[in-house]
Design a protein around this nucleic acid. Structure first.
Length: 280
DNA sequence: ATCCAGGCTCCTG
DNA sequence: CAGGAGCATGGA
């Protein structure tokens, strides 16, 4: 196994820290080491960072029930086994994930990264560790304070600028409580999220899957899933309604099923979209 | 140029 | 309630 390292700045337990995750040990006995750097990192922050990483990398989840459930599926079964060692990775920060999802609506991933970079740049939040500057995703308050004209000048569409600013204001005011939504049952969480302008069903399901770890949440409106699952299972692109029907037997693992197809698709087509194996 | 991209809102029938 | 038009923007 190649040595892997993952580093990023994150707001944890009320403070900004730099997470440094790397693997050691052997392929037989792999071992993950997490370092947490920053000014005055206490035990509570260390613990919170550890819990965040453990959760985000799905380290405690057991793929066996998923594999069993789809074992009889002619297409998905073998694919799930192929990707059994790779668990769906969650996103670390709910607010960042929300804006990521909204930014990514109807545009390609490269451009989504660019737009996210604009927010980071305009707000300028960062952490300095050992003289090195690490960008931090802005707070909801910071984004809400931006002028729409700034965003329009930086390739945001009018709708996108509006969604981003309004949603940030809603999070800042507490009207949209991303933490509380994580405790709601699936359908209530979807309803709570889609109440906001700019969050449709795709975005809500995406967040359930990638932030809240709902293993059954599949963004069935996703055009990439229409193509890759449709072609893999019935030999042609399918509609959202067809995908929902086709995915029913995979419940309660539809989120993991989507992940499996995304991984497989990337193997076949390296330039295609796939969920990052490190939280973006 | 043309089509596509990890959709959403709003308006029809 | 389902379906679809219209929308904006950049990338290939």
């Amino acid at each position: 196994m190649e040595p892997q390292r993952y580093r990023r700045a994150l707001h944890v337990n009320g403070q900004d820290v730099l997470l440094n995750l790397h693997s050691t040990g052997t392929p037989q006995q792999p071992r993950l080491v997490l370092e947490v750097n920053g000014p005055q990192v206490g035990a509570a922050t260390l613990e919170a960072a550890g819990a965040t990483i453990q959760r985000a990398f799905n380290l405690d989840s057991d793929p066996a029930p998923y594999l069993d459930h789809v074992a009889g599926e002619p297409v998905l079964g073998p694919l799930a086994r192929r990707w059994a060692a790779i668990r769906p990775v969650l996103l670390l920060d709910p607010f960042e994930a929300l804006l990521w999802a909204v930014l990514g609506q109807q545009i390609n991933v490269a451009f989504t990264r660019k737009l996210k970079g604009v927010l980071v740049e305009l707000c300028g939040r960062h952490l300095v560790v050992d003289g090195e500057r690490w960008p931090l995703f802005p707070t909801a308050e910071q984004v809400a304070a931006l002028d729409p004209a700034q965003l329009l000048a930086r390739q945001f569409s009018r709708a996108k600028a509006r969604y981003v600013l309004d949603l940030s204001a809603a999070v800042a005011s507490g009207e949209l409580d991303l933490q509380a939504i994580g405790a709601l049952p699936h359908s209530e969480a979807i309803a709570e999220l889609t109440r906001q302008r700019g969050i449709g069903r795709w975005t809500a399901e995406y967040l359930l899957m990638r932030v809240y770890g709902d293993r059954d949440a599949m963004p069935a409106g996703d055009v990439s899933l229409h193509k890759i699952i449709g072609e893999a299972v019935v030999g042609r692109r399918v509609t959202e309604a067809e995908l929902r029907e086709l995915a029913k037997p995979w419940a309660p693992w539809r989120g993991w099923a989507a992940f499996t197809f995304w991984m497989e698709n990337q193997l076949a087509n390296p330039r295609a979209f796939a969920p990052s194996l490190t939280p973006e």
